[in-house]
Amino acid sequence: MKKTTALALALLIAFPVSSALAGPSRGQALAANCAPCHGTDGRSLGTTPVLAGASRGDFVQRMQEFRAGTRASTVMRRHAKGYTDEEIVQLADYFSALQR
């Protein structure tokens, strides 16, 4: 374990261009779309709902209801129609994994 760490460190020093992360995951990049209204990583500072730590199931259900028009909203009925089912699940996975 220690050896691995040492090697990793050595590699980091030898190849400083490679860094800790590989850029945003798909869910993370999608979630960044929501930030202007819902806050960075869904941690809203205003009256818009906090998305960080949302229940995965609730998130998906709400987005589907917004899209179907069965849940009242102002802008969300427009935004929800812009994403595929798969993307909505990726968003739900990302936000539900965050601490509120």
């Binding site: 209204c37 806050g39 500072l45 205003g46 818009t48 102002t74 802008v75």
Partner: peptide, 9 residues
């Protein structure tokens, strides 16, 4: 919502 938008963005 506009106010929340401003603060968040």
């Amino acid at each position: 919502f506009a106010n929340a938008w401003a603060r968040n963005i």
